[in-house]
Simulated assay, not measured.
Amino acid sequence: MSGETVLPAPARAGRGRFATTVVVLAVALLVTLVISLGAGQYPLSPMQVVEALWHALSGHAAPSPAAGVVTSVRLPRIVLGVLVGAALAVSGVAMQAIFGNPLADAGVVGVSSGAALGAAASLTFGLSVLGTWTTPALAFVGGLAAVLAVYAISRSGGRTEVVTLLLTGIAINAIGGAGLALLTFLGTSSTREQIVFWQLGSLNGALWSSIALVAPLVIAGVVATIVVARRLDLLALGERTARHLGVRVEALRLFVIVVVAVLVCAAVSFAGIIGFVGLVVPHLMRMLIGPGHLRLTVASALGGALLLAIADLIARTAVPLADLPIGMLTALVGGPFFLWLLVRTRRQAGGWG
């Protein structure tokens, strides 16, 4: 007999599905990116796109205006969309893991409402402490403060019950919504339009400088989720079982909540509120490759990036001379999917899909 370990047939099949899914998602993402770089009000052929990218990578300035369109306008927007999509999808994986429910997403713990409140305060009061970074910075601080407040309020006796965390999140969301309504009322017509557009989500105006801030946070959040993936698998067996197997449930829950806050705050600070990505993508990936959180995190990151890349392509090209809000497009897809998921979960008495 050889010393090789022979995997059971289901394990081999699961690994095969995971590999196939990752390859398909990666190829689809690459194709979407190439199409997106060429599509728009200034259409470019694939050869022009490749030429512009080659000149950018080689460090030589391209004489054609295509290089400016690709490297300064479309590529930053696409890269930011990929990062935002991956961040939101992975945050959904983490939230569903610690809540043990496929209907959970980052909005449950108040991240989105807190970020919206911070951004609205910046716009309404005309704050410019950090220049153009003021609104993203206050959005980040608002989202992080909201999630930490939810955790602090719901913690009692050294523990945090999931139900209490959920109810506290609902309360914080309500407070954030009321504050957002007040700031919208106090603002001028211009600031109201800015607040509404920010709430709908958009990648318009993406810059390499903003990507330089978002990318490290997103990468760190995804890596952190991968690191605790094994413990999330054990947590799925139940808190009591996880503790028996050596998992520090409370520390894990706090760690995951902070990771989710960083991921979502990094995303919404520059792209606004984009809903349903963290709900739809992880559930679809779970249906394809199973519930293992390591594989689920990797596949969801690719799936979220692909979804945002497609949504951004549609937002830029669906209506001539217009830029549709991405949050509106994801809601058009995510709303019906959420209703289907709700009915399906109810029929299965709250089981995993």
Rank of each mutant, 00 (worst) to 15 (best):
L324N: 05
A26H: 02
I257D: 03
A311S: 13
P102L: 09
A13T: 09
L339F: 15
M285E: 10
V84I: 10
L117V: 10
V333P: 08
G327H: 04
G335P: 00
Q96S: 13
D105W: 01
G221K: 09
R243H: 10
L130Q: 03
S72M: 05
A39K: 14
N173A: 02
V258R: 06
I219K: 05
L232Y: 00
A267I: 00
L339V: 15
V256W: 11
S58N: 09
Q194Y: 04
L284A: 08
L165N: 02
V90T: 12
A19K: 10
V84M: 13
L254G: 06
P63L: 03
S45G: 14
P46L: 04
S154G: 06
F270T: 12
L302R: 10
G353Y: 11
R243G: 11
R346D: 06
G221S: 04
V82R: 02
T345R: 04
A26Q: 12
A301Q: 01
A271N: 05
P216K: 14
P325Q: 13
V141E: 09
S64F: 00
A318P: 00
D233N: 15
V268R: 04
I257H: 02
L296T: 09
A56W: 04
Q348I: 03
I195R: 01
A146P: 01
G169C: 06
V82S: 03
V298I: 13
T164C: 01
F337M: 04
A322L: 06
A94F: 03
V73E: 00
V280E: 06
A139F: 13
I211T: 13
L130P: 03
I226C: 12
L237S: 09
L88R: 11
F338V: 05
D233S: 11
L144V: 13
A119S: 09
L235N: 14
M95Q: 03
V79L: 15
L237M: 14
S45W: 08
A26F: 07
A178K: 12
R17L: 05
V93R: 08
R17M: 13
S189Q: 11
L307A: 03
W340S: 05
V277R: 10
W198E: 07
G142N: 12
I289N: 05
R192P: 10
L37G: 01
T5H: 12
G177D: 08
L263D: 13
A261F: 12
